[in-house]
């Protein structure tokens, strides 16, 4: 594919734990991607708007608040409503395995738990966006 991969790294909801999001944002940038970090406390509407405005190839959602089953499906729905269902969605955080299965079923490309190496996420994203 031509040009750099454009990724929006987003923190939805009220969760302020941003260590992971910032590490991932840097790792993706160091891997040569164009990274837009939304900052904290974003609504699903704000995240999707950013993804569309930035013409993002992917959205990485970092969430440790336990609200993933409310917020992530809403983001997927809004992407679809805006004709942006081809945007690759990744989720990282404390996501129990059966929730992760359900999110994948709904269209999340990858779910990464605590301890996932950033190199794995970089490789996954490269594969998913080029595919």
């Amino acid at each position: 594919m031509a040009g750099k991969i454009r990724v929006v790294v987003a923190k939805p909801g009220l969760d302020g734990h941003d260590r992971g999001a910032k590490i991932i944002a840097r790792a993706l940038r160091d891997a040569g991607m164009e990274v837009i970090y939304t900052g904290l406390h974003q609504t699903p509407e704000q995240i999707v708007e950013t993804a569309i405005q930035e013409d993002a190839d992917a959205v990485g959602i970092s969430i440790l608040s336990g609200a993933h089953m409310t917020l992530v499906p809403r983001i997927l729905e809004l992407l679809r409503e805006n004709g942006a269902e081809d945007v690759v969605v990744l989720v990282g955080g404390t996501i129990p395995e059966d929730d992760a299965d359900e999110l994948r079923r709904q269209g999340v490309a990858g779910v990464f738990g605590p301890g996932a190496p950033t190199s794995e996420i970089v490789d996954f994203l490269k594969g998913a966006v080029t595919a």
Partner: peptide, 9 residues
């Protein structure tokens, strides 16, 4: 803004 977050953490 509390939707989905009440009593979670």
């Amino acid at each position: 803004r509390s939707l989905g977050e009440v009593g979670r953490e």
